[in-house]
Design a protein around this nucleic acid. Structure first.
Lengths: 163, 163
DNA sequence: TTAAATGCAAAGGGTTTGCACCGGA
DNA sequence: TCCGGTGCAAACCCTTTGCATTTAA
């Protein structure tokens, strides 16, 4: 995976263009902008965030174009979407390797979960149920090491009132 | 309308009422209906599904009331919500035990994941990262044993074009 | 040339909110 | 009585769609 001369993302933009054109789709300024924004993105972004970011660069950006382009790019496998913490669609870019996500519900931080790290889960489920985990759709929510643990939720506990 | 019957849900409705009243909240026909609908619910329901189901029984049901009551009940710990497959909020009732969910992306079936079953994952993440998994927010997507495995996604593979 | 993409504006679906009235406790 | 709840309608947010126009190839 060594790119000889240029910025890695430079190459990726190039590839995105090639992919689009190879599929009979067109390489437009709007799509180029979107691809660049996507490539400058670390973890996940929601559709509306992408609209914003594109607009920050080109104020003429239109939501419909962004969403349609996102669709197109997704069809080519350049981006993928999953469901986010609040039920918002989230896109993430170029999954070089299949991985899941970890999100801290306190600080909002996110990290990747590698296949190796998820192995404990995938194997457990495969063994017990014959269930094949789709790692790219896995988001694990909880508390990261930096955030204080939950402070005794003071919960009514309806279900356990039973003697 | 007080049946001295011993349907388990009968008891739970009673408890829900007690909980509400203990918190200074009121027990209204609308809330009673919602609680009954919730208790007759197996897995998860979306807010709008709940609105529908309530409307099926009482056509005068109003969305705003349902959502507000859902909020109230959630505040008491009687229901919990998580994010669903398409990013829709999903409620599930009375989590007697904390558990996650398993969803087959082919047949749409869902199952619970017990703490024991998730232990492999939670321990792995706790050990490696000090991350405390919130099991009730865990949804694992994949293929169940009954559904055929994915048939070679024929994916463009942008990220790794050549060896 | 010519079909694909764009931009606009309007629709859509689920959820939320403001406000006056209603009704549990 | 009194404050929480209800109902209605309108607002909202994000996303999608129809259609005429533009534009990449």
């Amino acid at each position: 995976m060594t790119e000889p001369s240029q910025h890695p993302s430079e190459t990726l933009v190039e590839r995105a263009r090639a992919h689009l054109r190879a599929s009979g789709m067109r390489w437009t300024p709007q799509r180029r902008l979107l691809v660049e924004v996507l490539l400058s993105t670390h973890g996940h972004v929601t559709g509306s965030e992408l609209v914003e970011r594109c607009r920050a660069i080109d104020p003429d950006t239109t939501p419909s174009t962004v969403y349609r382009s996102l669709d197109a790019l997704e069809g080519l496998g350049l981006v993928r979407h999953s469901h986010g913490h609040d039920g918002v669609e989230e896109y993430h870019v170029l999954p070089e390797s299949v991985h899941g996500h970890l999100r801290c519900e306190a600080c909002g931080g996110t990290w990747d979960i590698s296949e190796a790290e998820a192995q404990a889960l995938t194997q457990a489920l495969a063994g017990a149920r014959g269930f094949a985990v789709n790692l790219s759709h896995l988001t694990v929510v909880g508390r990261c090491a930096q955030c204080p643990p939950v402070v005794a939720t003071a919960e009514p506990e309806l279900a356990d009132a039973e003697p």
